[in-house]
């Protein structure tokens, strides 16, 4: 009784029931295991967010301390290896899952009317995910990170006319330096996640609005 009363009180003010009806209690076409990949991507995003927040407790984005602080996370902090391990592998898995999810959408032609915008935003999400992978790769400030980022940013520099300028913007100067590390860090933990969160919000809204697409039948 107590709970029912409390729930009724809250529902009156928050509209919980309407929310439940609108988001959770929806009819859907018969499900398929391939349809779970989108929510798996969301799960990975949340997991990356959580482990990323935990990593930032000890991580220091400066060339002097970035490497040491990660060594400390791996060896000095309880479960640091697990948190970083999940974040490291989660990144790879997220790219893979997002990619397969997009392939599924392509194969079932779910990007067609009325879900064109959902696809468009999905492509944006793919690019952001790759951007997260790219910026996150530099943060450990180890040999692999340093030199791979040097090469990758040089690729941007090969564009005619604006290339050298893009290169300087990416690196925060002509060379890979403390400035590069801190701007990659900012992009990795603030800018890209903010964009991702916003895009995911719209993506989800559109999915609820149009419903999940059904698998095409012979006559579709």
């Amino acid at each position: 009784m107590m709970w029912k009363k409390l729930f009724a009180w809250l529902d009156e003010r928050l509209g919980l029931n309407d929310l439940y009806k609108a988001t959770l209690d929806r009819p859907e076409p018969k499900g398929n295991w391939w349809n779970t990949l989108g929510s798996a991507s969301l799960f990975l995003f949340l997991l990356q967010g959580a482990t990323g927040i935990f990593l930032s407790v000890y991580y220091t984005p400066s060339p002097d301390h970035a490497y040491d602080s990660i060594q400390y996370i791996m060896n000095g902090v309880a479960f640091g290896w697990l948190i970083r391990g999940i974040h490291h592998w989660g990144a790879s898995l997220m790219v893979l899952v997002v990619f397969i999810h997009m392939l599924r959408v392509f194969v079932t032609a779910s990007y067609k009317y009325p879900r064109e915008l959902t696809w468009l935003i999905g492509v944006g999400l793919l690019l952001c995910t790759l951007g997260m992978g790219f910026t996150g790769y530099l943060l450990p400030w180890d040999q692999k990170a340093y030199w791979a980022t040097t090469v990758a940013t040089s690729i941007a520099g090969s564009v005619p006319w604006v290339g050298p300028f893009i290169l300087r913007v990416l690196r925060g100067g002509t060379d890979l330096s403390a400035l590069t590390l801190s701007r990659f860090f900012a992009a990795h933990i603030w800018m890209l996640p903010a964009v991702l969160t916003g895009l995911i919000g719209v993506h989800l809204y559109l999915i609820i609005k149009h419903g999940e697409s059904e698998f095409p039948g012979r006559d579709d």
Partner: peptide, 19 residues
């Protein structure tokens, strides 16, 4: 949709198992 299922709990169940 008529031949289908509910998002909660049918789909979420599958989603969560995959997750």
């Amino acid at each position: 949709l008529q031949k289908g299922e509910r998002f909660w709990p049918d789909s979420i169940y599958k989603d969560l198992l995959v997750s």
